[in-house]
């Protein structure tokens, strides 16, 4: 994944950048399978790697496929990134180890979900029962955000020109699929 990331920084052809971005997300999805998050992997592969790539390609079709060639190299952003990364790595030294069953995250409410959700909700997939039942308000908030984003996209590019109207409705169609 890091290799793909560096290639993304170097590449100047925007079509290639978008394709690499899709590949990056797909790699992340397979990483989720390794870490036992199968539902997340499904969603990431379908929504993250599929719909996001389609949206980006549409934007490329509406704008331009080449990045401008001038490139002033400056050291300041790179230094800033290195310093921030060093501080973050220093911050991880206090974190629980990978896969540790005694980590604080596994102590609070998660055991209750694992033990009781089968009886209380009756769905074998715990992720589904938490998403739809215990934390249904989160999903309501998610739908609100998607509605706002759809309204924003329509307001921005929906009514500018007749040719653009067609594209705008396609973009929001992608949003509704995502929901």
């Amino acid at each position: 994944m890091a290799v793909i990331g560096v290639a993304l920084v170097r590449l100047r052809d925007l079509f290639g950048v978008v394709m690499l971005s899709g590949l990056f997300t797909l790699t992340a999805a397979s990483l989720y399978v390794v870490m036992d998050a199968v539902d997340v992997a499904f969603t990431e592969a379908a929504v993250g790697a599929g719909i996001a790539t389609v949206l980006m390609l549409e934007t490329l079709a509406l704008t331009t496929g080449r990045e401008k060639v001038t490139r002033r190299r400056s050291l300041a952003p790179f230094l800033m990134v290195v310093v921030t990364g060093a501080v973050l790595i220093y911050g991880t030294l206090d974190m629980p180890r990978y896969g540790d069953p005694g980590a604080p995250i596994h102590q609070h409410v998660a055991p209750r979900y694992i033990e009781e959700s089968g009886r209380e909700v009756g769905v074998p997939n715990i992720v589904t029962s938490v998403l739809a039942s215990y934390r249904g308000y989160d999903t309501l908030g998610e739908v609100t955000v998607i509605f706002t984003a759809t309204a924003g996209v329509l307001a921005l590019i929906g009514r500018s020109r007749r040719t653009r109207r067609r594209k705008g409705s396609q973009t929001t169609g992608g949003d509704q699929d995502a929901r």
Partner: peptide, 13 residues
């Protein structure tokens, strides 16, 4: 993930 794609659509618009 879903929210991220929605906001990315807004950014691209």
């Amino acid at each position: 993930i879903v929210v991220g794609v929605a906001t990315m659509a807004l950014a691209l618009a």
